[in-house]
């Protein structure tokens, strides 16, 4: 196995260890905890009265627009990282290129700002 894959094998092992730990703790807990089912216990909490309607209520559409903006910016951030690592070799050329890139990025933010997307209400 190559060194590269082996490094990520460790990551996978750690993920599996987390699953194992949670499983072990829950299994251990099952041995200790009481189980006394009553219908009242399984009603959703809503300030102590019986819940009104279903739990899956409608929510603010604003979150959707912010999520779209986030996807855009996050992908741009991914592009910035390789440049940041190699900046010493790229020197002035890289600096100018990234300057243009970030100005375009900032223009996008200014556009969203002026359009009122960043206003919450």
């Amino acid at each position: 196995m190559s060194q590269f894959l082996r490094q990520y094998l460790t990551v996978a092992i750690f993920g599996a260890a987390a699953v194992l730990m949670v499983g072990a703790m829950l299994g251990f807990g099952r041995l200790l905890r009481p189980t006394r089912p009553q219908t009242g216990k399984y009603i959703n909490y809503e300030c102590g009265v019986d819940p009104v309607g279903v739990g899956w209520s409608q929510s603010q559409i604003r979150y959707y627009v912010f999520a779209l903006l986030f996807v855009m910016f996050d992908v741009e951030a991914v592009f910035i990282f390789p440049w940041a690592v190699r900046l010493e070799a790229l020197a002035v050329f890289g600096l100018a290129e990234m300057g243009i890139f970030i100005v375009i990025l900032a223009l996008g933010l200014v556009y969203a700002w002026r359009k009122g997307v960043l206003r919450w209400v």
Partner: peptide
């Protein structure tokens, strides 16, 4: 959770974390 508080909380969390 099928709970209104939980749903609002998780949407706030997602909006904030991103």
């Amino acid at each position: 959770s099928a709970n209104k508080f939980a749903l609002l909380g998780s949407l706030r969390a997602a909006g904030q974390l991103i």
